[in-house]
Amino acid sequence: MIICQNLSKFYGDHPALQNLNLKLEAGDAFGFIGPNGAGKTTTIRILATLQEPSEGDAWVGGFSVSNEPDAVREVLGYMPDQFGLYEGMRSWEYLEFYAAAYRVPRQRWKSLIDEVLELTDLTVKKQSFVETLSTGMRQRLCLAKTLLHDPKVLVLDEPASGLDPRARIELKLLLKELSRMGKTLLVSSHILPELADFCNKVGIIEAGRLLASGPVNSILAQASRDRYRLRIRVLQRTEEARALIERSLEVSDLSEEAEALVLTTAAGLEAQADLLDRLVRDGFRPVEFAQLKTDLEQIFLEVTQGITQ
């Protein structure tokens, strides 16, 4: 559905994006992760036909971004990171404007607008002026307008920025629903856990280069190969326990989190079992001994560290 081939963008001599290669199938949900200034917005703007690539090309739904921009606009729904709504318009008028802008047949406007308002949970705000909406509602209204022309591909640039945790969860549910409806999603973010839930693929970008990309599971497996992240909590003599752990395992980074110790080790399962055994025998009274899953945040830190060091 989305193909990028050697996509590059230069601002003067400054490379904002270098040789990005990407391939998404229909129905994929792709999480696009990167620190500030990595080139996420640049990529997304190129896909949305707002900028021309300096080199390479991209195809959305089979249409080339630089040769058939109008066809791309028809199949693509785009939501920018920063956006303004038109003050002085009611929600339904705003949506009607975009329905006309996407050349939706006039007789379908009414039912469509009701549909997307229902989907984004804004039905009660149909008659409100947009300047009276809260940030979360604006975000959803913007998403609603993105859905009006029933695009096959949705490209969302940091949709969750500025939302409270509850709104974030609601947005996630909405995106999951959209993904279930068969839309191809490309969602950028620098807040990683919010992507892990509904993305089946992720790409990590830094300084204009795509460092890793692929299915979430394979990236997770790749990153956690031969490494374990443990969380250990004992009720007595914490300091002594800490010393013991450091002595018996090769620990790389050990930190204390809410009375528990979190560490990364390359030691095998046998050594871990031995350690637990000793903790019990020596009367440390362990209550927690858990293997943590390597999450996206971890991978992100690891992958991007390589570049900056």
């Binding site: 949305a48 028809e74 038109y86 802008a101 996407y102 050349r103």
Partner: peptide
């Protein structure tokens, strides 16, 4: 002012030429 309010991009990404 549309540019200042960041509403221009969305219009340009739609099918309005």
């Amino acid at each position: 002012s549309e540019r200042e309010r960041h509403s221009l991009d969305m219009v340009l990404a739609s099918r309005i030429s």
